[in-house]
Amino acid sequence: MPVVHVRGKRATQPLPVSSENNAMNLVRSIISGFLFVVLAVVTAGWRWTMLHTIPHAGGARVALSLCGVAACICLCVLWSVRATPATKQGQSTT
């Protein structure tokens, strides 16, 4: 039986694939939840700048839009990660 380290502790069995995937999905779901809050604030800000006359309204909309784009890119990066076969078998490729 190969000796493995699980979360820094010595163990003799690799974690099941489902456990790792569940953990990954939980972590990225929490991050995604936060990003949706940011997107909601960005949307509210966009609406507010449309309804109010403020100096540099164009700059405000550009900044808010870039926030939204960045949040969407983050969501794409997080959810594009898949557990690879090597990872699934608990094998390092190095």
């Binding site: 100096p55 926030c67 949040a71």
Partner: peptide, 18 residues
């Protein structure tokens, strides 16, 4: 000078946090 403070610092914190 080109972006109001509230939106500017929302932007900064987003692009650092991500």
């Amino acid at each position: 000078l080109i972006v109001p403070r509230v939106e500017l610092h929302l932007f900064y914190n987003t692009i650092v946090f991500i």
